[in-house]
Amino acid sequence: MSAFGLSDTPLDPAALARELASASAGACVNFEGWVRNHNEGKAVLRLGYQAYAPLALAEGERILTEARERFAIEGARCVHRTGELAIGELAVWVGVSAAHRDAAFAACRYVIDEIKRRVPIWKNEFYADGASGWLHPDGTPV
């Protein structure tokens, strides 16, 4: 099974965490990215995510492989949403299991940081004033 996935339907974090279950793991760290109702001082009503799926899947898989090589972890899994999301919905889930917590925390942080930096997924914010804008790393909608 692929460790990185895209989903156009709501994520089930409990089910995803169960996939990491292991008798030799003493730690499981999860990160949940939620849809927030504001950004850069603007009220946000909802988000839309687009992905270039073939490359997003390949790059996401590479990041999880890197995490397993760099940190003393057992399992690493990540799923990112696509499509339209409401405030409070789960946009991205990362889970890492390891024998000990230090590696699990560090690897989880590595995975979400690299996902945000490298995977071809884009966020469109829909604002309360009726405008919308695709976000780029400097926060400037284009």
Binding site: A51, K116, W122, K123
Partner: peptide, 10 residues
């Protein structure tokens, strides 16, 4: 060919 704008997942 795909020209990829700066990404903003997460």
């Amino acid at each position: 060919v795909v020209f990829l704008p700066p990404v903003s997942g997460g």
